[in-house]
Design a protein around this nucleic acid. Sequence first.
RNA 1: GCGAGCGUAGCCAAGUGGCCUAAGGCGCCUGUCUGUGGCACAGGAGAUCACGGGUUCGAACCCCGUCGCUCGCCCCA
Length: 419
Amino acid sequence: MFRAPRGTSDLLPEQQKYWRYIESKAMELAGEYGFGRIDTPVFEDSGLFIRSVGEGTDIVEKEMYTFEDRGGDSVTLRPEGTAPVCRAYLEHGMHNLPQPVRMYYFCPVFRYERPQAGRFREHHQFGVEVLGDPDPSVDAEVIELASRFMSSLGLSDIDILVNSIGDPECRPAYISQLKTYYSGFTDRLCEDCLSRLDRNPLRLLDCKVETCRALGDEAPRSSDHLCQPCQEHWDRLRDYLAAMEISYQVDHRLVRGLDYYTRTVFEVQPRDVGGQSTILGGGRYDGLIEELEGRPTPGIGFATGMERLTLNLQRGGIEVPEIVSPSYLVANVGAEARPAALKLAAELRRAGVGAILSSGSRALRGQMRQANALNVPYALILGEDEIQRGEVVVRDMASSTQETVPLQDFMGAVANRSA
RNA sequence: GCGAGCGUAGCCAAGUGGCCUAAGGCGCCUGUCUGUGGCACAGGAGAUCACGGGUUCGAACCCCGUCGCUCGCCCCA
């Protein structure tokens, strides 16, 4: 038997309510802030991601779904959402639009990883991007949006972590300080950290091994080594966040795995457990558009994982609205009633109300059971008697009461109610 | 890429060498109730016990391999 590929899953009808809930909240908020929706292709030229995400990153090095298409071009299933949006910004000359340009997206993203709790090979993101404005007020606004998004979902047990990792001006000097610091403790570093020392020194900071953590506490902090413009950006951001009364924590260990981030980085984490816990991550990427051969254009955004949001909604016991079932089940008895039932169901749907046609192959008893199991408020019963008299039995399932009414009157009432 | 655990019907599972032609529960279907649901009772369908090999007189159960799933590390949403 075929199964869904490793790390992927089917989103079954009974789970859809979470997604609908998250999507509706996200779209509502995005609209409030003036974001327009963008949808980009599921796959892109492989070079786009190699260039933007960074050659040395894990994503590019070992996680991309890259293949040659039949024409011999190398394409890659989108491993993240920001680069395609930037590509679209450039391709469609959006620098000619009023700046900044605000866009949001929902899309599947693909990374070849070992699946575990909250981590998949295909997952789905909601993300926002603001392109064309360097001002820290935009950072504050985007972080505020993230915060509002969490509270609108009902997720309250979360921390918002914020940091500044500088820019190409000041970061190299900081990184070399960091290396110097850690090089003095090579005897105390874990094996992973020893390799990070060469490959990705920033990552030393968020190692989870106890001894490494202790070293990280005392390590030089990026926010203490910012160049003057970065420092000013960082100071103003914190002023704005304070002015907006956003509760957040500065986390000097916060770094992100993609090369394009500059200055502001932030994450949202649930308060309880560790593991694959980050539910939202983002930051500023002022060099990215230029890296993609555009005029220097600043940008900032974040992405959230639908699956992790759902997980947290479920863990938090947060009630989400059920997807409404149709109002009517049309039961029918006897061969004569079958076409009449089909017609009635079709008319109801045309009138804008949902109707499920019950299979006439079952006894009426079975059809009523079905009505009960499907949780429809009303069952409509058509039998030969009703057909002859031009009537229909309308049964209110909740109160177990029913009345026989002329079909025309019933349809008239339905039309009035839905109008 | 590394480490650990687990695979018995759609789901939850009992069973740890013969009494297993595999218990029970949920769900599904049918009947009791000849055209009326939720409850109850009765019945039914649904399992090559993940797959392959081995040990044994005998394997769901022990051993080996494979595959799959889950969890952790790395990394990330």
